[in-house]
Structure formats: C-alpha cells, structure tokens
Design a binder for these strands. Sequence first.
DNA 1: CCCAACTGTCACAGCGCTGTCACAGGGACG
DNA 2: CGTCCCTGTGACAGCGCTGTGACAGTTGGG
Lengths: 225, 225
Amino acid sequence: MAFLLLIEDDEAVRTALEMSLTRQGHRVVTAATGEDGLKLLREQRPDLIVLDVNLPGIDGFEVCRRIRRTDQLPIILLTARSDDIDVVVGLESGADDYVVKPVQGRVLDARIRAVMRRGEREANDSATFGTIVIDRAAMTVTKNGEDLQLTPTELRLLLELSRRPGQALSRQQLLRLVWEHDYLGDSRLVDACVQRLRAKVEDVPSSPKLIRTVRGVGYRLDAPS
Amino acid sequence: MAFLLLIEDDEAVRTALEMSLTRQGHRVVTAATGEDGLKLLREQRPDLIVLDVNLPGIDGFEVCRRIRRTDQLPIILLTARSDDIDVVVGLESGADDYVVKPVQGRVLDARIRAVMRRGEREANDSATFGTIVIDRAAMTVTKNGEDLQLTPTELRLLLELSRRPGQALSRQQLLRLVWEHDYLGDSRLVDACVQRLRAKVEDVPSSPKLIRTVRGVGYRLDAPS
DNA sequence: CCCAACTGTCACAGCGCTGTCACAGGGACG
DNA sequence: CGTCCCTGTGACAGCGCTGTGACAGTTGGG
C-alpha cells in the first residue's frame, strides 16, 4: 500500500515489523542506524518513515530534525513505553505521529494508514469535523451550514489544528504556528483563544467534543466518529 | 484526457507521476529543469503544466511567473508540505492550483480535472454574481441590465476576483494580480479600490454582499446563493 | 481526603485592522 | 496646451479583536 523506510537498531524488532508490514501489503526497506536511514531516504525516496527513538549514534529525534530540514514526508516515531517527555520532544522535532513500543504490526499499520490519509486530506481545500466544515480557499468555517464569524486569530488556530487532526499540539507549538512567537511565559494566551474558539465551534462549549484538552500538553482537534 | 507537461527534478517522483498520469489517460511530457520545461512548453504547447517548486537553477515560482508573461495555460504547483508561505507565493506568481507533496497520482489527476473544468467555465465569456453580469469578451459589467462605468483598475480588480469566485484573496495577492507590484507597505491602495468598486457594484455599499471582507486576509467575491 | 498543578473563565485596556475621504499628481485626450 | 478624470496616498476614526492577569474550578496523585 505504501513504500516505507523502517529505521530500528534492534534486529529482532526490525525483522518482526518488516515482516508484519510487508504482510499488510507495504513495501519496506530497513536501516539499523540513523546514518544508514538518511542515506536510504535519499536513495530510495520512501513515502513514509517509521523511526525508532533509541538509536546508536545520532538518535531518532535528531534524525527527525535532519529529515525535516529538507523533506516533508510523514514520519512516525517509535518510542519507549509511555514517556510523555518523548512525546512532546518528538512532535516538536517534526514527527507526524508516535507509537509506543512494544507495538503490534497491525497497530502500526493502522497508524501508517491514518497518517497517509491525513496527508491526502491536507491537500484538499476543505475539511469536516462533525458539524464543522472548514473551507481553506474561501477562509470560511461553517457549522450546520451556517457561517461562523471567526476572528483572524481564531481562524488561524483552527486551521493549524485542523491540519493535524487527532494530533495533540503543545501550547508551545501552537504559539509558534499561530502567533509566530517563541516563548510563552505562564500566560493564558493559548487557553483564552481556545476558549473563544470553542464558544463558537462547539455545540456545548463547557464539554468540548471537537477541541479536546490534553492535560499537561495542549490541545487536539478530534473528528467525532 | 489532456496533454500535460510535468516539470520535476527528482527522477523517482517524475517517473512515478508520469506513469500514474499516463495510466489515468493523459499524454505526458516531462522536463527535469525549469529551462527545459520552458523550452518544451514553446515546442509542444501542452494543455496544462504540473510544476515542482523546488527546482535547481530557476525555481518553480520564477518559472511560473515567466510562463504567465506570455501564456495563460493552467499551472498546478507541486509544493512541499505544510508550507503556507509557498501557497501564498504560488498563487501570487500566477498558479491556478497547488498540490502538496507527497502526492498520489489519483489526487493529482483529480486536481488536473478540476482545473481543466474551471478553465472551460472561464473560457465562457460571461459570469454572473447576483445582479452583476461580467462579459469578459466585451469587457463590460452590467447591473440589472444597465451598463456600469468601471475604470480600468476597478475592472481588472473585479475580473481577478471573479476568476476565483468564493476564494479569499489577500491584499498581497491582489496587488500582484491587479497592479503587478510586489510590495504593499501599509497603504490603503487595495482597500480604496475595493471601496470604489463596491460603490458601483453593491446594492448597499456599506453592507457589501458581493465583495466580502475577509478580516486579517483580504477580500472575496461571493455569489449570493 | 487533601494538596498541588493545571486549566477554564472573565473583564478590561490597548491597539491593530479596515472603511472612508480629501487631495494632488499624472495620464489621456482633444 | 488645457481639461478632466483616474489613481495612489496618508490621515483619521471607529470598531472590535487580543493579550493580560487574577481568580475559580478541575483533575490526579499521594
């Protein structure tokens, strides 16, 4: 279904994932180190990269950053179990998704498909989240067909969230993406804007279904199933 | 279905897209650099150009601008993912659409068809927006059947807006399209022209229904439903 | 159950954005 | 050469967006 590059130093994990992903219909090339991975990336041009965080030599985060300097292809990080710091650092270093080890091939496959779909949807000019429709060309947002009057900042915030549906974005990241600032003190800037956006976008702003809070991290835009 | 010129330096991407587009029924010629692309354009006269932004030598934007100086054929830009600046610059340089990489052949094909359809509609010489009728061949605009006396600049502004109905255009983009300037300081140039155009076009200029303001962005021409 | 950390909420002051307008330069045309 | 109208500019005002900081509410762990 897709052409993947798997970068993972542990041989057992590597071969297991390779077999499983191949069985799911993907074409897979593998590398055991970050250096080899970067070389293979340039030579083979995969559609997507699955990248272990714990690598000998340059680690996964660094590999991720280096890839992002030149390439925009989707990256999924494999990270050791439930390490919140890893998650934040990983997303900030430019990854599209992360998966916690130990991971089953089926689960990874589902994430791969999700990330690829996300990429396709991004290219499209309109996106739907529940009753909300975002028209990126017209720069309008409608709810049940009615125009929502969003302020410029609210709109930018929603656009950035909608470009990464289902992905938690830290206040730090949002600050960079929406406000183009680097540092947020302990002000409630992002929270206040999210509140205003929720007031217009959510059916019940006090129990938001679209813009979810991710405690300790930031916010996430969900499409209700 | 159409005769395409694909300009893309990365050989893997180029051949992949060429195969995919050929399979979709298009006739495709390819070039690896902007120079070759421009030469092929003159020699072969394709219906549409798919143009990568990252090209060695003269980049895609520049190629796009050069093509626009002499030709009006549709151009679709291939741009690196999630780069808003690219999108804006791309449309300003005269592209008709942009597609975000990595891109699937199917998606690109859909965009190609959409742009071609749009082109056909455009070839039609008149467009209607509410009580306003624009006759592109006669270069006249009528309101309820009566001729409107638009000045040259007002007319160009209205024509550019009407080529992209429902799409928000930034002041920056309009400046490029209508005035062929590059930089707008903080002057009220675009606003002033929009105001004058509204005075003639809108039923109630103080609450415009056709030329809508998109706060923080620019303006948009709507067709009242 | 309690505490600490985190998030939601709100009012307000400042200011950024847009609409508006008058005016002067300049080009077109006779 | 004179006239007229188009056009870009800058000033100004009004509106409403936005960031701030204090405080209340909520969550989760010990």
